[in-house]
Design a protein around this nucleic acid. Structure first.
Lengths: 227, 227
DNA sequence: CCACAAATGGAAGAGGTCCTCCGCTTAGCG
DNA sequence: CGCTAAGCGGAGGACCTCTTCCATTTGTGG
């Protein structure tokens, strides 16, 4: 059963200010979100909360009142980007040409990873554990699977491509992104080019090893913390 | 001018204990190195020094006397792996089939990244700033360039492959590695398969975008620290 | 076996982040 | 305009890591 493009992609609860709070509180909340986005974009999400509070021109307590946990701030700060991803995916699903749709999604998301280091943190590294985020990730996963299947059907995508390979690309691209902006952009483009080229159907090509069980919603904290 | 395979690949000064120190000091040094390697292998190099000292069964001061800076410990702990890389490269340079040599180096290094999270830290993320390390990285860079050129000459490697693409692969693979060991292994294998497939000469293939200026010796700290 | 310097370990200072408490300010309603 | 509670900021406690200091232990050459 095909997924319906979502009607209002930016309805994430985290983004919508709570009704009935005082005007100054609403204002401060907005300033905090903006400060967080700016700070995260630069070097990822490992920024002291105090820095974000200072940039927003509010005290630490205000930050913690609005966003009790680290994850809630991250989730709220990136619900906009999440919406952008969902929109890109919806658009791709509407495209008559599934191959073009898939390339376009991959290109867009890779570019977002380059342009905003916090984006990767929000979706791959940190684990905000926000219900909205989980739901949207699951939706994205399903939409991607559908898009992948269609692209296989049209013969634009190799048959042994696995939806988890999208996650694989995102992780790989994330690894490439920790350089200066210009270098990151060039590196990401080149990585994507290599990847896409192998993804296209090449009948004589050797088959790939087993796909890795990478589901977006399983990716957690920096790594697999043991010890 | 072709590079000569190095005669004694494991002569890194960091590995060789200083002559003339007391037997217990030499012993503790060895215990520290082993503890560091074990701790780093698990989750990368962001392990508190105190943990390493405790695991080695020595006090914190002892650690700092032997390895005054974080970088010196990391560099010393991974000089063995570095030697392994250099050996793999030397072996590849001796191989009659440059393509096979190159694939083998890439496969080996990717696998090392999977099996030892500290390895990546030592070579890509942290900046131990050890003279030995710099020298060996430069040597590796040169050897790789040579191997790449040979593989192009035999027609096994696409003409627009750039030596920096090896670094690109290492970074990408590093991004894929932060999962459980089994998942990481599968993911890394699959990524490598995708990459290698595009690297093989395919005359009709679309050309790649500009290579990214990624030299092993330019990669620094987590990222491009601004702010 | 002894004396002495090398080497050690634990304590403690410095620095940084997370988060909470609490007295003060101010928006918003009547 | 004035009351009230929502909201605020900064101080400070808990925790963690890095690094140094120093009294004590221990290997070793004579």
């Amino acid at each position: 059963m095909p997924i319906q493009p979502s009607r209002n992609p930016s309805s994430s609860a985290s983004e919508t200010p709570v009704r009935g709070q005082r005007a100054d509180a609403r204002h401060n909340r907005a300033r905090l979100l903006q400060a967080a986005r700016e700070a995260y974009a630069l070097n990822g999400a490992d920024v002291p909360s105090s820095t974000i509070a200072r940039r927003a021109g509010v005290g630490a307590a205000t930050l913690y009142r609005h966003f009790p946990t680290r994850g809630s701030l991250i989730a709220a700060a990136f619900s906009e980007q999440l919406a952008e991803c969902v929109a890109a995916l919806d658009e791709a699903l509407r495209d008559d040409d599934p191959g073009r749709g898939l390339w376009s999604v991959l290109t867009k998301v890779c570019r977002m990873q380059v342009e905003d280091r916090g984006f990767s943190a929000a979706f791959l590294e940190e684990s905000p554990d926000d219900p909205d985020l989980h739901r949207e990730r699951a939706r994205a996963e399903a939409g991607l699977a559908q898009l992948v299947q269609r692209a296989k059907n049209t013969g634009q995508l190799r048959k042994d491509f696995d939806p988890s390979d999208v996650t694989l690309l995102l992780l790989a691209n994330n690894g490439v992104v920790r350089q200066s902006p210009e270098v990151s952009l060039a590196a990401s483009r080149r990585l994507l080019a290599y990847f896409l080229q192998s993804c296209r159907t090449t009948d004589g090509a050797p088959s790939l090893p087993q796909p890795a069980p990478l589901r977006l919603d399983d990716l957690y904290g920096p790594p697999h913390r043991t010890g």
